[in-house]
Design a binder for these strands. Structure first.
Lengths: 187, 187
DNA sequence: TCGAAAACGGAACTTGAACTCCGGTTCCGC
DNA sequence: GCGGAACCGGAGTTCAAGTTCCGTTTTCGA
């Protein structure tokens, strides 16, 4: 029974500005990470800080909005993976695809590995993602291609670690991912 | 030809306070992480902030001192590993042992995965660590127990990721490490 | 023992970034 | 096209954390 969207339609200028802010925030956080300044985002959106704060109670709320969208995309990818046949390839494809999305967004990397508390804004998306990932894992284990002791919770743990290495330019996170994938494969 | 230690012997009270500060900083950073406050460390050391700043130009310098000590311990462990015979067990022991040390120190975890720039204070220790790790890797590869494409740079990358997951209490980093180890083993 | 140099303590200063406030502007139903 | 409600902008406020400054205390060689 939670209210997810405001009932009252926003005035034209308000809706326009809200979109601009979200778009600007997406770009700025993606490039500079989560400690980009609120003032910078407002400027990038062509809007005053006051306007930004009328649409989002605080910086965290803005970050949360973007994070939820990312998790939604992750869950969509998981469903796409389930629609594929090969138990191993579909699983590996999901990790590679979602990792690549993280690689393009510094803010997302930081949110994933330094601030798990912030994930709570996207509970429904997370549950869907977890459910689909669980199905993928089970399918892989039944086919004998995934290690038997793998559990769903391992995936966010490993991805957190992976995103941490992405923030260091001189590391090749693709290598990290491939090592993890080898570690997840059944022997 | 860099000066590593000050020539002039410190006054008795100064030396005593310096030790107290280092000891307090070790404890506070280990428990609270690198954004523990300078004032808290001074208080824990039973010393004024001014005293802390006479011994260390800034907070980073204090962190650097502690970090260098940790890297020294890591390198010592690497030499101990080289003294062992079993190529795989000695390698795995090193990762497990150094990981366990990280697990006891939140500040160290954060330094390792969010601030690689800070490592530069410990170049000599890092080079020694890297050299010994390289020997361990070569030995493991020649014995056919380590994957052929493994390079020294992969180790800090993987450890960075591992320390990131340690900061989340609900993750079991031991599982993460064992998955990585399986990924590093030759097939 | 004694005095100058070295060290101390912690109140005050500085900084930087999140957030507020209010006079001006824009929208939209009538 | 008008009035007032909704919205805007950005200068100014607040707050937390690092760093400095200087009057007081401690050390130690002569």
């Amino acid at each position: 029974m939670t209210v997810t969207e405001p009932q009252k339609p926003l005035r034209a200028d308000a809706r326009r500005n809200r979109e601009r802010i979200i778009e600007a925030a997406r770009k700025v956080f993606a490039k500079q990470g989560t400690d980009a300044q609120v003032d910078d985002i407002a400027r990038a959106a062509g809007v005053g800080v006051g306007t930004l704060y009328r649409h989002f109670p605080d910086k965290r709320a803005l970050l949360g909005e973007l994070l939820a969208a990312k998790f939604r995309a992750f869950a969509d990818n998981a469903e796409r993976a389930l629609a594929e046949d090969d138990p191993w390839e579909s699983f590996a494809w999901l990790l590679r695809t979602n990792a690549a999305a993280c690689a393009r967004d510094v803010g997302l990397q930081q949110a994933l590995h330094r601030d798990p508390a912030a994930w709570s804004v996207a509970i429904p998306e997370l549950m869907r993602l977890q459910d689909r990932a669980g199905q993928l894992i089970r399918r892989g284990q039944e086919a004998g291609v995934l290690r038997d002791d793998l559990v769903v919770e391992d995936i966010p743990m490993l991805m957190s670690g992976l995103t941490a290495t992405m923030t260091v330019p001189q590391y090749d996170w693709h290598r990290h991912l491939e090592i993890i994938l080898d570690g997840l494969r059944a022997r």
